[in-house]
Design a protein around this nucleic acid. Structure first.
Lengths: 243, 243
DNA sequence: TCAAAAGTGTTGCTAGTACACCCATGT
DNA sequence: ACATGGGTGTACTAGCAACACTTTTGA
């Protein structure tokens, strides 16, 4: 039975997802808190079914932990060092814990399969945190949003993978205008600016930023929003779907 | 014996290399002409040893066909559609031809392994054609340089892979200043311009191009070269190794 | 009336483009 | 001398950054 399970997937090839969200002016990453190990954490990931494309596999993994179907995602790099798992201080821990876990499923064969050398395809995804319905898997205590700047210790090379994804996000933010996937349906220009600042980790000039974004001609101005504060009411915008 | 061979490699995961060269003012790609099939061609590629990193595997494959050690290369994308081989008109042809090929090695098990579903990591490399010593493998009649604009029919999705690599090369040409890997030790500004034109497929203004390249401060001017033509002698440049 | 936050305008710098001109070279 | 191709300079433009100013809002 468990042999059948491993047989359904391509061996030695995995997908790890860096799922970005945005909340309280901070860029967040979704992190798995595993049931085994001492507060061991890592990226949500999974394997590729022999009968599905890698994009389908990534979407399936994303749906499993967020419940969402329509997610912006992109592969950004392959991590293929031989020792990315074997050199990890967690490798043997993970293997031992898995075997203790549930002897009906995690046989020695399965845990060996899972802790062997893996080439990992890195995907990053952008989600609206408010729309996410976190669904921890059988191996997970919880799924947690962590500030990208204050990540806890992560297993294997997952911290490095997050850094690569973060760099890629920064590079693609202007080029592909993907940042709006992180915002709610409608938003103020200030929110857009704060999002960009959170991703780039540096301030933007208010007026120039507004001009830059409006000149893209991708936003529609909806109406003013009166916050009750003693100042000019900001406009609400929404992303204009491509014609 | 052949089972041992397939056991040495990660199953269902391959590397295909788009090896760019530059000759006679044209951007070229190195193409395998297979011994089997009717003039069947494809990209040089290979598999990943269980004990080597994916970068090492790519370098090994490159060394096998070009004889070169120090090659600029970069992974650019993973191709993971389920049907990228099975939907190919060549799949069954390749399998049948392989089995006829050499029954000591290409057993049914091996050819099944080789023609099963594969996730392919795409690498592109830049080489100086003059330095290359082409070494066809056991399955290859020849390795041939083809104009990127006039590619012959290629097996599976290899044409698509070349197009993706070409796009990536164009995008990275300025950003990473990698074009000089395609030129000889010393070169004139005209040669650099022609290289850029070949890669981008569009003309550049002579004077502005010269200014742009010189402003990068990465070239050293060596001396004038007297071509014998009735005009001003151009300067020779060489790439300045980073301090 | 005032402070706070939002919207907009002006200037200057820089990179890229188009145009023009001058210089070296061999016939 | 002159045609050819190479080197360089100038002006125009677009995009971005720094500055300033005006407008709206509720207390």
């Amino acid at each position: 039975m468990s042999t059948a399970w491993t047989n359904d997937y391509i061996a030695h090839l995995s997908i790890d997802c860096v799922i970005f969200g945005y909340q309280e002016k901070n860029l967040k990453v979704l992190i798995s808190n595993y049931k085994f190990g001492h507060d061991l954490r890592g990226l949500p990931g999974g394997y590729i079914h022999k009968k599905e494309s890698i994009d389908q596999a990534a979407l399936r993994i994303l749906k499993t932990c967020t419940g969402l179907d329509d997610i912006y995602l992109e592969q950004f790099r392959v991590f293929g060092e031989v020792d990315r798992i074997s050199a990890s201080p967690h490798k043997n821990l993970v293997r031992a814990e898995l075997e203790k876990f549930d002897d009906k499923f995690f046989t020695t064969a399965v845990t060996e399969w899972m802790t062997s050398r893996f080439v990992c395809i890195g995907y990053y995804a952008l989600v609206n945190i408010a729309a996410v319905d976190l669904q921890p898997g059988v191996l997970e205590n919880a799924l947690e949003w962590h500030d990208v700047e204050k990540l806890p210790e992560l297993t294997h090379d997952h911290r490095h993978i997050v850094e690569c994804a973060h760099n890629e996000l920064r590079e693609n933010l202007d080029k592909k205008l993907i940042g709006f996937n992180l915002l709610p349906e409608t938003f103020t220009m200030k929110q857009v600016k704060e999002l960009y600042e959170a991703i780039h980790g540096r301030p933007f000039a208010r007026n120039n930023f507004q001009k830059k974004i409006l000149d893209l001609n991708i936003l529609d101005r909806i109406n003013k929003i009166f916050t009750g504060a003693a100042n000019k009411a900001p406009y609400l915008y929404k992303f204009r779907p491509k014609q």
